[in-house]
Computed example of a mutant assay.
Amino acid sequence: MVRQELQEASDELRKAGEAVDASDVRERIHDQSDQIAELATRASGPDHGRLDRHMNTLSELADQLDGDAAEHVRQARDHLRAYRETVDGV
């Protein structure tokens, strides 16, 4: 089962990584993309805490970026937020 919102977040991060020149930032973005893609296909979905950590990291990344890269990171965060609204608890 693929959690579509999480997969879309990962895809947006891939696009952001392609728009970034700095290799260290691109690496952080791709790392987040990989982790979120894994969450999209795991047997059990992520909890609120895990999603919150990713959302905080994406906020930090978006603040460091501008242009298309920042917009893709913000879109990824929006997808995480939309998925998080479907998670039970908190």
Rank of each mutant, 00 (worst) to 15 (best):
V2E: 06
V2F: 01
R3M: 05
E5A: 01
E5G: 00
L6W: 00
E8Q: 08
E8N: 07
S10H: 03
D11E: 11
L13V: 08
L13A: 07
L13F: 06
R14K: 09
G17T: 03
G17S: 04
E18P: 02
V20M: 07
S23K: 11
D24K: 09
D24F: 10
V25P: 03
R26P: 03
H30M: 11
D31E: 14
Q32L: 07
Q32N: 10
D34L: 09
Q35D: 12
A37P: 04
A37M: 08
A37C: 05
L39P: 01
T41F: 07
A43T: 14
S44E: 14
S44F: 01
S44Y: 04
P46V: 08
P46S: 15
D47M: 03
H48N: 15
G49E: 14
D52A: 13
N56Y: 05
T57R: 14
L58M: 15
S59G: 15
E60G: 14
A62T: 00
D63K: 06
D66R: 15
D68M: 06
A69E: 09
A69Q: 10
A70T: 09
H72C: 06
V73N: 05
V73S: 05
R74F: 04
Q75S: 11
A76K: 00
A76V: 01
H79P: 04
H79C: 08
Y83T: 01
Y83M: 06
R84M: 03
E85G: 12
T86L: 14
G89P: 10
G89M: 12
